[in-house]
Write a protein that binds this DNA or RNA. Sequence first.
DNA 1: GCCAACGTTGGC
DNA 2: GCCAACGTTGGC
Length: 137
Amino acid sequence: MNYWLIKSEPFVYSFSDLEKEGVTMWEGVRNYQARNNLRAMKKGDLTLFYHSREGLEVVGIARVVKEHYPDPTAEKGDWSVVEFAPVRRLSHPVTLKTIKSDPSLQEILLVRNGRISVMPLDQDAYERILTHSENPS
DNA sequence: GCCAACGTTGGC
DNA sequence: GCCAACGTTGGC
């Protein structure tokens, strides 16, 4: 079991949209590092769903339901998609501010490289973020 | 809306 | 293969 964090701009595609749709093809990733992370995802892996640009918080958990295959929306190049389904919404969102103020989360890529949209999380960081959602400050 | 940080492109 | 220029992302 691997853990991940994916970003989406909520005005483009929000966690609510995923809940409505039930399953989504995660299309449009055009960054090699992010693409390689998509390709490393296994069915059943869990990913935190983060709202970028607006909200700036982790709002829910999604699960990989289909492993990577070529991105049908890519006109050229070697790109991949996976499919996600919602698991649950967090009882309380965990803000970027909260994450940045937690000394044990300073090493995660969300903090260290703000520009990557699909990133791995180790289990400790994943659970730590969920702990924040259960015990909002 | 601005702009820093980062990734990518392309001239040499 | 270096690196300047450019485009994009995303926090503020």
